[in-house]
């Protein structure tokens, strides 16, 4: 079986974001990384491939974006993906990303598609579900564990206050979250060397009209300064929470 891991290229999560003219991200000095949830998805895909009982032959990563994202794609290859596909377009929104990814999945017949539950930029939690609907295949969201047993999926998904073990037939999209892999895998020197020669296929985009448009960005309003209470006087804090904040 072939696995596709969809990866997004996002600013490192410690970045202090700034915008130019409220309309676009100031990319000066930004470190671009594989979206953290996608990195966990990739780690799990590689673990599954290494354990033969899952029956995974190859792990491919796909990214929708311009050539500037290639270092991030190379990083995914260095971590261990076998090859990569980049759809050469600067997508306007998640709908466009999902629509382009659907073409990739259809062209290459991936049986298992993994997406991170959220991207660290637009926080939409949208691409995986959209992709599944474009493909008219099952999806399982909030996935914290995944394996294949005798060609069948065994999936743990988080529900309110607990979890469910479910199975869906292939092809399917699993939208994964924390827990899917213990820690993201780090590229070793050998992997970095190997990644240099691994193929990145560049696919031409389909014409897709986006459904949303960012009108402007703004920074959060600064919060009022913290009011300090003496450690010996916890009662005063409780009184402030009751009378001033009115939350107790």
């Amino acid at each position: 079986m072939k696995v596709l891991v969809c990866i997004s290229n996002v600013p490192d999560t410690t970045t202090k974001v700034k915008f130019v003219d409220e309309s676009k991200l100031d990319t000066n000095g930004i470190q671009w990384v594989i979206n953290p949830w996608d990195e966990l998805a990739l780690t799990r895909a590689l673990e599954m491939k290494e354990d033969a009982s899952n029956g995974i032959e190859a792990v491919t990563v796909a990214h929708v974006g311009l050539a500037a994202a290639e270092p991030t794609i190379r990083k995914a290859l260095a971590i261990g993906a076998d090859n990569a596909i980049r759809v050469n377009v600067d997508p306007k929104d998640a709908y466009e990303v999902a629509s382009q990814l659907a073409q990739v999945v259809k062209a290459e017949n991936f049986e298992i598609v993994l997406c991170g539950i959220e991207s660290a930029d637009h926080n939409g939690s949208t691409v995986g579900g959209m992709l599944a609907e474009f493909l008219e295949c099952p999806s399982v969201t909030c996935v914290s564990s995944l394996k294949m047993e005798g060609g069948k999926s065994v999936i743990t998904r988080e529900i309110d206050g607990g979890k469910e073990i479910v199975s869906v037939p292939t092809p399917f999209v699993a939208v994964v979250q924390k827990g899917i892999a213990k820690e993201p895998r780090i590229a070793a020197m050998r992997g970095i060397m190997a990644a240099r020669t691994k193929p990145i296929k560049v696919a031409e985009p389909q014409a897709v009209a986006s459904l949303t448009e960012v009108k402007k960005y703004e920074m959060p309003k600064p919060r009022a300064a913290c009011k300090f209470v003496d450690a010996e006087n916890a009662g005063e804090l409780i009184a402030l929470l009751q009378n001033e904040a009115k939350v107790l």
Partner: peptide
Amino acid sequence: GKALAPRLSVRLKAALGAG
């Protein structure tokens, strides 16, 4: 909601304002 809204967006060709 995170499971359903994106699928609905495609099915109804409806823009999604998430969260």
